[in-house]
């Protein structure tokens, strides 16, 4: 089986400071991988390098494209990479307002990706947007409301709908439940898990919340100071961590 995403030796420096260094892994279709680590461990840098928001100093990010098979997205032309970014890839930001157009209605937010890939039938676009609002548990009557009138949890769900409407195969998530109330987090996690399962999505989730990765991720990478110190099956890494840092990380979580 061809990996959906094959990351090879990704390195990103900020001057003398290391963002992340020599990160490699393969992600297969349908797999969900979590990346955990403390603030400054390089997990967000890595995510942004993979998603094309940052250009790494070294390494490859090979994506199995629909039409041409595996391609290194780092050396791919920018139009091609941006096209991937609005078709086969999705990016869920921690703060919904970074991923939404706050001045545009919920329907317009969801419809944007459809229009970006050339859909030009208003009725169809609106129907699809309404359908997706339903899937993320937003009432269809809110389709013409702006996200500024939504709660934080609804905004985050709208962001997810906006990202998934074009049926992407790979979703990058940066702290998707950060900044939400605990009760809202649970609902979002459940929703994400259902969508991942039903759509057969692959996902890479960056978070510092170990509970989030336990529920969503099949695999886990633990990062410290820009390096991957441990990787493996999520529950194995969490329940039987091998590296000193992972042991510290896991044992530092307060038990409820």
């Amino acid at each position: 089986m061809t990996p959906l995403l094959s990351v090879q030796g990704i390195t990103k420096r900020y001057g003398a400071h290391i963002g992340c260094t020599d990160v490699s892994f393969d992600l297969y279709p349908g797999e969900v991988m979590g990346i955990v680590g403390e603030s400054g461990s390089g997990k967000s840098t890595l995510l942004n390098c993979m998603a094309g928001h940052l250009t790494p100093d070294a390494g490859q990010v090979v994506f199995d494209t629909r039409t041409e098979g595996p391609r290194d997205t780092i050396i791919m032309s920018e139009p091609e990479r941006r096209m991937l970014g609005r078709t086969d890839w999705a990016f869920v930001h921690q703060h919904a307002r970074d991923g939404l157009r706050m001045g545009v209605s919920a329907g317009g937010n969801v419809g944007e990706r459809l229009m970006a890939v050339g859909e030009r039938h208003y009725g169809d676009i609106r129907d699809k947007a309404t359908d997706w609002l339903g899937r993320v548990e937003i009432d269809a009557s809110r389709v013409d409301d702006r996200p500024t009138t939504f709660s934080g949890g609804m905004q985050q769900r709208l962001q997810i709908a906006r990202n998934l409407v074009t049926g992407p195969r790979l979703v990058f998530m940066d702290e998707p439940t950060g900044g939400l109330d605990v009760s809202v987090q649970a609902r979002l996690l459940d929703l994400l898990r259902g969508l991942v399962r039903d759509m057969g999505l692959s996902a890479i989730i960056v978070t510092h919340d170990l509970a989030v990765v336990r529920f969503l991720a099949d695999r886990l990478m633990v990062m410290k100071s820009g390096r991957v110190v441990e990787a493996g099956l999520t529950d194995q890494v969490l329940d039987d961590p091998q590296h000193a840092y992972s042991q510290l990380l896991v044992s530092s979580v307060l038990q409820v």
């Binding site: 157009r101 545009v104 317009g108 459809l114 229009m115 970006a116 030009r120 676009i125």
Partner: peptide, 10 residues
């Protein structure tokens, strides 16, 4: 130019 149609959609 998807964004231009978002304006018309709105």
């Amino acid at each position: 130019y998807g964004l231009m149609h978002v304006k018309l959609y709105e």
